[in-house]
Each structure stands twice: as C-alpha cells, then as structure tokens.
C-alpha cells in the first residue's frame, strides 16, 4: 500500500497547499481564497475567503473585482423555510476582533461573466475592497467542483 499512498499524498499536498497563502492589510488578515472549477464559462463561479480583523475598528468588505470575471458580486445564501435564495449583499461586515468566512452555504462571491472556464489548479487574482482598509489583491486557487475547501495545516475549520 505504501508506494500507492505516497504519490497520492504528494499530489494532494501540491494541489491544496496553494489556497493557504496569507495576506495582511492593516489589521485585516485574508487567507484561504479559493474557488471551484466550472463547466464552461457560462455558469457563474464562486469565490470563498476568510477575513479576520485583529483591530479595534469595524470594517466591511464592500466589493470584489477580478480579471477572471466581468461581473463579480457579493452574495449570501439564505435558507428561509427550507428554500434557498442568494440575495445580493452590498457589504459583508468584518467586525473588530472577529473573523468572517465567505464559505459554502453562506456569504460568497458570485463570479458572473467568466472570461474562461475555471479549471482545478488554475489561479487568478481577486481584488477585495474594504470600506476602511482599502484594497488588497489575493491569489485565488481553483479547486475541483467537489472540493469543500482548502486543506491547510492552519485552517481554522
């Protein structure tokens, strides 16, 4: 079994380690930026990320932009009476001393108007605009459509 497991473990490490980059902007830490592969360029893609605010001032994510998509928007999946909808979020609060996750089933970026299909292993830049801290660009790693998130040693999930 061992000779089989080793290459598999290496591939896993190579494909998942990427979304583990950490970027800081003032008191904000941005990490685990990832997306899922798409079938073709017509379907919307997603964008997930974790933002923590170590400062004493509330901030908010107010916009995202990327060369990978013509119309990126912030959305929130809301399940009310068992029915899921995805209202547009104008801003996502990042309160002082707290962390916010854009994660499956909750807040997420919805990337419409893709310039090309996203394939697992691809990487594209995403600029996040915060109400107070300003702009920062992070690398987004595209994981398989089935992925549930990046496997980082430090992942707080």
């Amino acid at each position: 079994m061992k000779p089989l497991i080793m290459p598999f473990a290496l591939i896993l490490a190579a494909t998942t380690a990427q979304a583990c980059e950490t970027v800081t902007l003032g008191d904000l830490t941005i990490e685990h930026a990832w997306s899922k592969a798409t079938i073709g360029a017509d379907r919307p893609a997603v964008f997930y990320v974790e933002i923590s605010n170590r400062g004493a001032t509330d901030d908010a994510l107010v916009g995202i932009s990327t060369p990978a998509a013509g119309m990126p928007m912030l959305h929130e999946t809301v399940v009310k009476d068992g029915v899921a909808s995805m209202p547009h979020s104008m801003t996502i609060p990042v309160p002082a001393g707290q962390a916010v996750q854009l994660a499956p089933g909750g807040y997420h970026g919805m990337l419409m108007g893709l310039s090309a299909a996203l394939k697992a292993g691809d990487r594209f830049p995403m600029t996040l605009t915060f109400e107070k801290a300003g702009k920062v660009t992070v690398n987004v790693d595209v994981l398989p459509l089935r992925a549930e998130g990046p496997d980082c040693l430090d992942a707080g999930q």
Binding site: K36, R43, M86, P104, M110
Partner: peptide, 17 residues
Amino acid sequence: FTWCPDVCPTTLSDISG
C-alpha cells in the same frame, strides 16, 4: 440546477461524502 454556484455543488459534495 447546474447553474447554481453555491448550494447545489455543496449539497452534491455533501451527498458524495
């Protein structure tokens, strides 16, 4: 539906698991 970016792939990943 397959154009669904968040809920459906999440559900399908869950069920696959």
